[in-house]
Design a protein around this nucleic acid. Sequence first.
RNA 1: GCGUCGGUGGUAGAGUGGUCAAUUACACUUGGCUGUAAACCAAGCGCCUUCGGGCUACGUAGGUUCGAAUCCUACCCGGCGCA
Length: 430
Amino acid sequence: MPPVRLTIEAKHSSARAGVLHTPRGDILTPAFVPVATKADIKGIESAKFPSLGVQTLIANTYHLYLSGLDAVEKGGGVAKFMNWNGPTMTDSGGFQVFSLGTGFGKKISKFTPEKKDLQQNGLAKAPEGSEDPRGSFDGDLSSSAPAVYDEDLATSHGKLAIVDDEGVSFTSHLDGSLHRFTPERSVEIQHRLGADIFFAFDQCTAPTDSYEEQKEAMERTHAWAKRSLSTHRQNLDANTKQGIYGIGQGGQFDDLRRESARTIGNMGFDGFGLGGSFSRKYGDHSLQSALAMLTELPEGMSVHGLGVGEPEDILLGAAHGVDTFDCVTPTRNGRNGGLYTKRGKIQIPNAEHQYDYSPIDEGCQCPTCQNHTRAYVHHLFRTREILGPILASMHNIYFLTKLCSDIRESILNGQFEQFKNSFLETYKGN
RNA sequence: GCGUCGGUGGUAGAGUGGUCAAUUACACUUGGCUGUAAACCAAGCGCCUUCGGGCUACGUAGGUUCGAAUCCUACCCGGCGCA
């Protein structure tokens, strides 16, 4: 019996409600998975999770590898280390390849280590015949540019990562030191982190990337998936304790998406990760166009939506059969003053809330709304008190976990469509 | 009373004859945030505008100058020192 498996309880068209069984407990799906990048949901201690409807969380391989890996491992893995006795996940670090590298601009920064520098350091294999593997490095690769950390350059979003077929060479955003991830290395680190569910190392793309770029990243992701899976399957101990999800890519191209789902779906993974980057800056339909791929997956395979977390997108994803969603939206928006309400998002620091003594969201059962007013949270933001972002994050997390449990209930009751339409009507203010 | 230093936009504080409607920070107004390099980032922030520009502004009132927040005079206000 695989350590991670999904039991589907009810379906409503493609939407489904189920139970995702993991070694550390069951997750009722659809479920929202808060992001705990560095082994904490920013601002929220684990004792608070139950009151926020949190069933599981996802930590990050890249960040924990750069700081804290040994301590996490010796502390018994991500879950035990943070004193959370529920299921956990880890992301593979593949997204950082994107966000630290190809995702930022098209101009190579002089901060970026060159391939030859990396090779000199024994960090990179020469990708034969691929001087320009992604076709996006229009910087001058031949001039000598030292891979030295420079805060100004770092904060101006220079690229910190270079991809080749073997893996990714990158410089730490913390101290500029050189590192290298391969699929094998990512899996080994994730074994040490010990989450119930972890992801194969992939290459994430932006929906705006060209067909050629998407195809190349997808094929590389498939090759890496195979290597990730094989590395995992060779570790018999880890196989009994952890499930591995493969990630599909393909950008906005339906043929690539479907091909990716078929390929990854038939490799023997314990679940499927819907890959990509669905920020609105890439348009309003990047998620929509990616979701069709899910119909190519084997029946009953669990699906995780990576980085899908706006309420509309969770509803959209759930409608297409996504079981779990992770996203930074509740915590990042919360810290920055953006709060979810049934009637849409509000900016709590804005002047209109100064004397509003009603709760953030009328009828909300979260600890913040049960105990505090908009005026109070507004005041905490204005005075830059740390409690403001904490209360805001708690509310937002609850909002999204509640949305997922409402979706689940509506599917079990055969009312998903009605619930979805009614929620969106109120949320969008129509 | 005498001497001295100083009075700049919501605040602090630059500027010390033209490139100044005035650097910068904070405050303020608003927008953004989708597998977290994010307790972050961005825009706006005298009035009017056909967006070319126009008008009023650097304690108050005069003056010098082609031109003044910047120089001069008087006055008002504040700090400090001496009586």
